[in-house]
Amino acid sequence: MESQSLFTRVTGKNVLMSFTGPFDTEVLSIFGKNIENSISKNLKLNKTIFKVFIELAQNVSYYSLEKEMTKKGEHAGVGTFIIQDFKDYYYFILGNPIDEKHEAILRDKCSKINSFDREGLRAYKRELRKLPPGERGTGNIGLVQATLVSRNPLDYSFIELNDKEAFYIVAVKINKN
């Protein structure tokens, strides 16, 4: 999806929840709790959104180019998330700055994830899970899990910020039914 259309969505109506700042453990837990308890009356649907939130937000926390020292002394990645409420689905968007050199790698990761059917994606997740934590490529597992849980492909896009940085946006649709 092109940046322009993603941003048209975001600047439109239907924003249910949004945040910009460091994705530290406190932020993850506070928003996680809110999502779990109050997005909709359907607790199973809330749980699905929660699962997507946790997996994607942790990626921002670990991989955002911009870091901020929190009160607890954590170096948390800075980013933005938005949840929008549409008639048939929720739209969950996350964005964070990245080194421009990583754009091609991330684009390939997202494209690879979207190329799998469900069985292929499960096999890919198993492959990633066997890698030791912190090893190159393990960050993909959160993206894979978000795709599996949401049962929709990733929307992703990149906005050039300057010669060295880009803004990476990843979004997933979570169907209400």
């Binding site: 699962k51 946790i54 997996e55 997740k125 934590p133 597992i141 899990q145």
Partner: peptide, 12 residues
């Protein structure tokens, strides 16, 4: 009833 992907490695 729920575990994140980080936990899933430890379960493995």
């Amino acid at each position: 009833t729920y575990f994140n992907t980080s936990t899933s490695r430890s379960i493995l």
